[in-house]
Design a protein around this nucleic acid. Sequence first.
DNA 1: TCCAAATCAAGAGCAGTGCTCTCGTTCGAG
DNA 2: CTCGAACGAGAGCACTGCTCTTGATTTGGA
Lengths: 245, 245
Amino acid sequence: MSTARGARARARIEVTAAIKEEARRQLAAEGAAKLSLRAVARELGMVSSALYRYFPSRDDLLTALIIDAYDSLGESAEAAHAQVAGAGPRERWIAVCVAARRWALAQPHEYALIYGSPVPGYTAPDTTIPAASRVGLLLVGIVRDAYRGKGVARAPLPPELKAEAQRMAADLAPDLPPEAVAALVAAWAQLYGLIGFELFGQFNRIVEDREPFFRHAVDQLAHGVGLVYPEPTGTPGKGNGMAGP
Amino acid sequence: MSTARGARARARIEVTAAIKEEARRQLAAEGAAKLSLRAVARELGMVSSALYRYFPSRDDLLTALIIDAYDSLGESAEAAHAQVAGAGPRERWIAVCVAARRWALAQPHEYALIYGSPVPGYTAPDTTIPAASRVGLLLVGIVRDAYRGKGVARAPLPPELKAEAQRMAADLAPDLPPEAVAALVAAWAQLYGLIGFELFGQFNRIVEDREPFFRHAVDQLAHGVGLVYPEPTGTPGKGNGMAGP
DNA sequence: TCCAAATCAAGAGCAGTGCTCTCGTTCGAG
DNA sequence: CTCGAACGAGAGCACTGCTCTTGATTTGGA
């Protein structure tokens, strides 16, 4: 129905794709702030006003790029997860986190576009929600499988968080205990804190060898959501690792 | 020497302050991307070119605002910490984190300026480092005091992170064990992941009652850096909190 | 006290931006 | 075959950061 509906329609989707491609190129080269409709049009050999036939505004172009970025990140994470589908929840968790970091390092400007400061006056439309949810759903799935297998142990919730955690669990994963869902959502945000700090230069002169640092941090994150239950390492109260001054 | 060196010098610092103040106003109203030198000048009743006598470029104005923002955040965190100086490390940790979140919610655009996506082509000069370090130093101090008191217990480091963690410890807190320093730096980044996700709308439709959620999350963070040793809640292996479907 | 030097605001101007509107042209469904 | 919708081109508007020149004012040392 929508395929080959005439040369005009085909040309339209072709030009639309070319615009996005060139915009993505400029995004990688200069960043979202310097994305210029005129420059994109110039590079494509057309005039700036012609672009408005395809994207009503610069923000709409940005929205399209945002959805593409979310999908690209989600795809990378899903592919990495598929490769370790047989492994335990801890390995799967780490694989997804590492894939997210790798993607972010490879496309820093696209990462900044979706997880950096939002453009003022611009609010992402609901269209972006499915693409934006992919990594999160992956993480939920890992915890769910772990829970189905042996259950996840989590710190008890403070009373003032109980109701909210139950609501979150009902929304995101009704088959998981509220404790696990709250811990998961927190870990989800913290994962992007780690990635963002490295990407945005906050680790400069602080963390040098980032890959093992990141792996260790997300491993502890897996701990935090209850994916690492049998291992006795790091249980509080042992008091190891203290070197006196 | 620098005070009252004539009416000219005094007028200069007054005008400089007025420019920053107006710029901060526009920052809060429209965000960093839409900060316009011309608009600032217009509002101040001067001509745009006159602004360049005080700030060589727009980026230099941004740098000044960034330093001010870091200092403002650091001041808030330090004030909150001073109010609970006598309490235990866990309470002090939570107080600092809560103050950081509160500051961020009150000045979202200034938070985005310092912890959001960096402006492409702009790299913060080393001048910003002292101001940017204040909250981190506060957290280091809390862990140090806890360590001096009873020691902090932490998960053992994987072998490939040992060297880097020792280097980080030597740089940041030579009196702390590398395990604690690595955990602390990770928690530091994760804290801003939590704040950023709430501020940048990633929690929309996910987390509604954010204050208790945040408190619980940073409490777990305190756990992660070993500040909460005696409490037996949430120790892995107990397997509590599992409600079967 | 005087005068050169430094500092300042102002204005014009440059190259660039997002976006609107109008103009002929071309395509394709009825 | 026709007529409306879609299209590219171009001019133009109101902006932006930034540079350069001009003329006035202030300053501090001789």
